[in-house]
């Protein structure tokens, strides 16, 4: 259970952003491409140099070592990258139980990454992130390029985690139906600022 608070976070294309997400809150962010949504998520995850401060409950980002911060405030980028041949080499110990709960057979860990389908890749990338037990989630187009069944699986996975762990979720999504369906606060980028979606 942790809240996430952005204070004067700057990302290219955006005025400094102040935003607060309560523990377990879902906030959608949309806007034209190139408006700085992805860069904002990268800035929050501290992947690009940026002034401003982010708070996870009482913890200031600048006082937490960067690797620990990224485990606690986890970003799932639009495109998942894999650096080993085997799926299992990307997951921490104990990920088997998580996999089993999602309809993956135990042998999944030995699968070759190159043989995964787009849907499997995206779901496994999400599992990879969730296995770190993050306290806040930053999702960048988590379901783009997925067919409806796979989209639904990913949505369920995120929603279960959010409700179960009380994680704050900041979700960049292009899909108006998805934003409607899942509820939550909806923000849009207008004139370099985050405003509520009309």
């Amino acid at each position: 259970m942790a809240s996430l608070r952005l204070q004067g976070v700057r990302a290219q294309g955006l005025e400094p952003v102040d935003l607060e997400l309560a523990a377990g809150e879902l906030v959608f962010l949309s806007g034209p491409s190139g408006s700085g949504k992805s860069l904002l998520l990268r800035a929050v995850a501290d992947l690009d140099p940026n002034p401003g401060e982010v708070w996870l409950d009482g913890f200031r980002r600048s006082q937490v070592p960067a690797p620990e911060w990224r485990r606690r405030v986890a970003l799932l980028p639009a495109e998942a990258h894999w650096w080993e041949d085997r799926v299992g080499d990307h997951l921490p110990e104990g990920a088997e139980t998580l996999l089993a709960g999602l309809g993956f057979e135990p042998g999944t860990l030995d699968w070759a990454v190159s043989r995964l389908s787009t849907g499997e890749r995206q779901r496994l990338a999400l599992i990879r992130v969730l296995a770190n037990r993050p306290e806040a989630l930053l999702l960048d187009e988590a379901t783009a390029n997925l067919d409806p069944p796979n989209r639904e699986r990913v949505e369920t996975l995120v929603e279960d985690y959010r409700v179960g762990q009380g994680a704050a979720v900041l979700w960049v999504s292009h899909d108006p139906e998805q934003r409607e369906r899942l509820g939550g606060r909806r923000l849009v980028i207008r004139d370099r600022r985050l405003v509520p979606e009309p």
Partner: peptide
């Protein structure tokens, strides 16, 4: 060329020297 792969590891909480080790 491997920016995505390196950053993927950083995002999962790897330190810089683990992310570039290979």
């Amino acid at each position: 060329e491997s920016r995505g792969r390196i950053e993927a590891r950083l995002l999962l909480g790897a330190s810089w020297d683990t992310a570039i080790a290979d």
